[in-house]
């Protein structure tokens, strides 16, 4: 195959690899016969089975809890730099997560190698090329890595579908680089999770997102009711209402928020700005409700309804309940 060795940086949360890590492993299998994962988490070993099942033969794991007590970017970049020098991977894939970006950015500077971010696809036919989309996803750009190995690419979540390879658990190889005093200059003193109920936004088969057209923060309650009625649905939001403080940032869909690819995306009172649609136009089907028939969101919608969300959504809750019996 085209590349000798590809590494995937895996974010691990409570022993579970982030979905994007499994997506990247799936892609990596098409680029190289040797696919390996790297993780910095005290319970990384618990993820070895799932990472292995998606193609990682080896898992380099830093399980020293000290990595969790500081901002990961600096100690992980140091440890990775040493590991890269030893094992010489050709390509490092990072998911576009907060820690992934921190580690990749520092590592690129430390190694003096180029990094391409915001990727949607990666190929290795003739050198490594990363596709990105710019200007609100109106243009696709292919960028090829020049000199300096390894190539470092940061890929947006949901760019590939995760598929099991049926592989055995990854062989765990410990990373023993200690977290030295220098890395303690930025400490994590607490981790706070926004309260969330129901399925995760990125994983729900139905996503219902609300925008400024809901008129008032309390009308998000209507979307919660609809999500309940549908079941297995999550509620998202446009940036306009996140910035206005109606709902937390963790609900934001779009360029500076989450990318979702549900079976059905329902945009409620959202105009359809490019920065929003870039995060949802990969949905299998799109439904839009907007009172303005010229709203750009209708250009993407499989079903668009021109009307008042405050009238339609409550009726829709009843219709869904009636159909579910």
């Amino acid at each position: 195959m085209a590349l000798g060795k590809v590494w995937v940086f895996a974010d691990i949360d409570a022993g579970k690899p982030a979905p994007v890590a499994l997506e990247l492993l799936t892609k990596a299998r098409t680029l190289s016969d040797t696919v390996e994962a790297v993780a910095f988490s005290k319970d990384a070993e618990a993820a070895a089975a799932e990472l292995g099942a998606h193609g990682a033969g080896t898992l380099y794991a830093a399980t020293d809890p000290a990595y969790g007590e500081v901002l990961l970017g600096s100690p992980a970049a140091d440890a990775l730099a040493a590991l890269v020098a030893e094992h010489k991977p050709d390509l490092l894939l990072f998911g576009m997560t907060y820690d992934g970006r921190d580690v990749a950015g520092r590592l690129a500077a430390k190694l003096g190698v180029p990094v391409i971010a915001n990727g949607l696809d990666v190929s290795a036919d003739d050198g490594v090329t990363v596709s990105t989309s710019i200007f609100g996803a109106t243009l696709n750009v292919a960028t090829k890595f020049g000199g300096g190995a390894p190539a470092i690419a940061i890929i947006r979540p949901k760019s590939f579908a995760a598929e099991s390879s049926g592989g055995a658990a990854a062989k765990v190889v410990p990373i023993t680089t200690p977290v030295d005093e220098k890395h303690r200059r930025a400490k994590v003193v607490d981790r706070v999770a926004d309260v969330a109920t129901g399925p995760k936004l990125e994983e729900a088969p139905v996503v219902i997102s609300g925008g400024r057209g809901l008129g008032d923060p309390k009308n998000f309650e209507l979307l919660e009711q609809l999500a309940q009625a549908i079941g297995n649905a999550a509620v998202g939001a446009s940036r306009a209402v996140v910035d206005a403080g109606w709902v937390p940032y963790s609900m934001q869909v779009g360029q500076t928020g989450k990318t979702v690819k549900p079976s059905v995306y329902i945009a409620v009172g959202i105009s359809g700005a490019m920065q929003h649609t870039v995060g949802m136009k990969g949905a299998k089907a799109i439904v839009a409700i907007n009172k303005d028939e010229n709203a750009p969101i209708f250009k993407l919608a499989d079903l668009g309804v021109v009307g008042d969300v405050l009238k339609i959504v409550p009726q829709l809750v009843d219709e869904v309940k009636a159909r579910k019996g």
């Binding site: 949360d13 901002l71 400490k187 994590v188 607490d190 981790r191 706070v192 999770a193 926004d194």
Partner: peptide
């Protein structure tokens, strides 16, 4: 991804 970290 989940909320926020308090960092010093």
């Amino acid at each position: 991804e989940a909320g926020y970290d308090l960092v010093e």
